[in-house]
């Protein structure tokens, strides 16, 4: 599934990195604790989270994650988006809750990393 397809399925807004829209992704990790993302998400290329602070982008950067999806209408500010610049990270935001977001993507063939 591409990042563009995820955006369409989730009715999400593209906040940054639209040039990465055609990247194909397969494995997803979802959590609000970045500690858990760092511990268990290293095989995943998509992060779904409701946490909204700069360390979300930093965590994604360390793990080579290519797409962050903010759920529950969370909206990263300009400083957070600036951290994604030049890192090859696309940023999406959807109003769906985390469970619904995960379910919709699972239905479309995406899987967790473990």
């Amino acid at each position: 599934m591409t990042i563009r397809e995820m955006q369409e399925v989730l009715d999400a807004r593209f906040l940054y990195g639209e040039e990465l829209a055609d990247l194909d992704v397969q494995f997803v990790f979802s959590a609000d604790m970045m500690s858990d993302v760092l511990a268990y998400g290293s095989k995943c290329s998509v992060l779904i989270t409701g946490l909204c602070n700069p360390q979300v982008v930093r965590t994604a950067e360390m793990l080579d994650i290519v797409c962050i999806i903010f759920v529950r209408g969370k909206m990263p500010d300009e400083n957070m988006l600036a951290l994604a610049v030049g890192k090859g990270i696309a940023v999406l935001a959807t109003d769906h809750y985390m469970f619904t977001t995960c379910g919709m993507l699972y239905e479309h063939g995406l899987r967790g990393g473990a």
Binding site: D32, M33, M34, S35, L38, A39, L51, N53, V56, T59
Partner: peptide, 17 residues
Amino acid sequence: VRSLGFGAGMGLPNMKK
């Protein structure tokens, strides 16, 4: 710290891992 997404007790184990 937990409300910022850290402090789950995974830091040092992760560094070792």
